[in-house]
């Protein structure tokens, strides 16, 4: 069975890159705004659905992806303004309930528009790279590259721009950031826009690999929360590494233990990480003074 290890690791990296791509936007919003944004799964679904509609109307897939992703940005900003901003001071429970409600609303709206049955967008990059040790689809390689590109994009925005400086300041201390003249409302909108952009982009790309339906975001967003815990909430590198760790782990459990234990393996690791490193692999412990 060990001769299959290279293929299984490649399978894990391919699966992990899709997890990481979804987790990236979620960790940004959760890390900066402390909002458990469950509807991130629905933003992912909308990215896939918008792309499906545009392609169905004859648009080229590569043109449809940025348009669909930008449309999701608008939905994401609306989501924040309607669902979260007005109850921001209401505490974590209110935010969580609102997040769940928004998630259900978006699913229902999608069901009314597109129905409950799945749809698919044809893969724009068919073909498989075959080597002596493993095979991988060209499109899976593209998703891997897109995940790294998204991470780089967010990293550059956060660490090489004034906007990023303001976002980081806000995530560290809202009050101090405001006293420094940072407009919290605009920074909040920008943070949500970037999170939604990545979520929508993930949906646009992954919708060509997986069936598209209103509840398609439920499972990925659950996995994304697990990745947040593994990688450390708010840590971009943690989201990437956590995504790959989870993907590889799921594949190895399924391949070498039992395909019936795939999910149990995932959540067993989650519990172990919570016990050993409660702030995640890349999270920092907080000191309360």
């Amino acid at each position: 069975m060990l001769e299959l290890l290279p293929q299984q690791l490649v399978n894990g990296l391919a699966l992990g890159s899709s997890y990481a791509l979804i987790a990236l936007g979620l960790t940004l919003v959760f890390g900066v705004l402390q909002i458990p944004n469950f509807p991130h799964g629905e933003l992912y679904m909308l990215g896939a659905s918008f792309t499906y509609v545009l392609v169905a109307y004859g648009m080229n897939f590569w043109v449809a992806v940025p348009i669909a992703s930008l449309a999701v940005v608008i939905v994401g900003i609306l989501l924040d303004q309607v669902g979260y901003r007005r109850i921001d001071t209401g505490g974590n429970l209110s935010l969580m309930i609102s997040a769940l409600a928004m998630s259900t609303v978006l699913q229902q709206v999608a069901t009314l528009i597109w129905g409950a049955e799945p749809h698919t967008t044809l893969s724009p990059l068919p073909g498989v790279l075959r080597t002596a040790y493993f095979s991988i689809g060209y499109y899976q390689m593209l998703i891997f590259a897109a995940t790294i590109a998204c991470w780089l994009f967010v990293w550059v925005v956060l660490h090489r721009s004034r906007l990023g400086l303001a976002i980081r300041a806000m995530s560290q201390n809202k009050m101090a950031a405001q006293l420094m003249g940072i407009d919290l409302i605009w920074i909040r909108i920008a943070t949500f826009a970037i999170g939604a952009l990545i979520g929508g982009f993930a949906g646009s790309l992954l919708g060509a690999s997986f069936p598209i339906y209103p509840t398609m975001g439920l499972n990925p967003v659950l996995k994304a929360f697990v990745i947040l815990v593994i990688g450390g909430v708010g840590n971009l590198w943690g989201a990437i590494v956590g995504g790959f760790v989870l993907g590889i782990l799921e594949i190895l459990v399924s391949a070498y233990i039992s395909s019936q234990l795939q999910d149990i393996g995932t959540f067993a690791v989650l519990v172990i990480v919570l016990i050993v490193r409660p702030n995640g692999l890349f999270g920092r412990a907080e000191v309360l003074r």
């Binding site: 069975m1 001769e3 299959l4 293929q7 299984q8 399978n11 391919a14 699966l15 690999s209 997986f210 069936p211 499972n219 799921e250 594949i251 190895l252 399924s254 391949a255 039992s258 395909s259 019936q260 795939q262």
Partner: peptide
């Protein structure tokens, strides 16, 4: 094995193909 809603079957298929 797999279950309804799964989207990745590569681990099982790699084993079966071998």
């Amino acid at each position: 094995h797999f279950q309804i809603g799964d989207t990745d079957f590569s681990a099982q298929l790699t084993n079966l193909r071998a």
